[in-house]
Amino acid sequence: MKKRPSKIFKDTVITLVYAIVAATIIRLFVFETMMVPTGSMIPTINIGDRLFIEKITFQAREPEIGEITVFWTPFRDERAQQMLRAFDKFMDLFSPKEFKGHVKYVKRLVAKEGDVITLKLVDGKWKLFVNGEIPENLRDVNYLPEGVFEYPELWNYLDKASRLRNNQTEYRKFLYELALKKGSKFANIVFSIVGGMEPVKYGIPYYEYVDKYLKPKNINFEDYIWKKNGQVFVKIPNGFYFFMGDNSRESLDSRYFGFVPKEAVIGRPILRIWPLKNFGPVQPIGIK
């Protein structure tokens, strides 16, 4: 006996509803995808790669040092938002409430809470030392002493600049005085990150991150960054991680924006699904 059209329509709708509910549950708790908009992890991960992210593992354990990790930015990265495609914007509608309007970054975890890190030259290459040693999983990765390792006061100035960003007159004055005081290179770094006016219209409203994640925990940057014998040291506060990109010269990472709260971690990329010619697993260095 043939089904009536109304019955077929009803069954189809029910099936679609079940499929949407199942897909939403999977998206929220098990898997999701991301498109990589920058080259911060080259050659490990390339611009335009689409990654399949597994979320279960980091619900059972913390990421390990050296492990590639995907996390929500603890601030709104307006520039990266402009680079997202329609599919990514749609999927991010399912993002947690506290990260609405944020984007995903993929970097390598290099330090956890309580760790003290610094960069030193070893055989002509800059290596990251964690608690006085180079972690086994980071021995093959080289970094540059930029960002906070070059300018220990950087994060404080990002906070100050971002609070003036909506007042163009005061913002321009601040950047001009900063260039006179700290040099044009430092002022340009602050402007390139904070943005807010031509030719860098989009950027990071950094003060939102400070007010939401640091001030409630009474975290002051100067308590966690110090210089000794010309060496800059950074201590990771409780409840935070420190991430860096493999392509150190082109990576906007914790050297520039600071500590990442643990709750921002999403999962680990396990599969590159696009482009098809590079389809395959994403293998973190030294992580099995």
Rank of each mutant, 00 (worst) to 15 (best):
I117S: 01
S95D: 15
F75T: 03
V122F: 02
E67K: 05
P135Y: 00
K104I: 10
H102C: 13
V103Y: 08
F99S: 11
N131H: 04
E78G: 12
R79V: 09
G66L: 05
K100S: 14
F94R: 04
L121R: 07
I117H: 00
G114R: 07
L119I: 01
E67C: 06
K97C: 09
I68Y: 05
W72K: 11
W126F: 01
L84C: 04
T118P: 06
M91D: 11
G114Y: 03
D115G: 06
V70R: 10
F75A: 07
M91G: 09
A86V: 13
V130P: 03
K107V: 05
F75H: 07
P74W: 03
E62T: 15
K97H: 13
V122Y: 02
F94C: 04
E133V: 13
P96D: 12
V70C: 11
K104Q: 15
A80I: 12
A60F: 15
D77M: 04
G132D: 00
P63S: 03
L84I: 06
M91Q: 11
D115T: 07
E136S: 08
T69N: 09
D77F: 08
F94H: 08
V106M: 07
T69P: 06
R79H: 13
Y105G: 02
L93R: 10
L109A: 11
F87G: 09
G101H: 07
G132F: 01
E64T: 05
Q82D: 15
I65A: 11
P135H: 01
F94T: 04
L121H: 05
L93Y: 10
W126D: 02
E133K: 15
F87S: 13
P96F: 12
I65W: 08
I117C: 00
K97V: 14
E133F: 13
G66V: 04
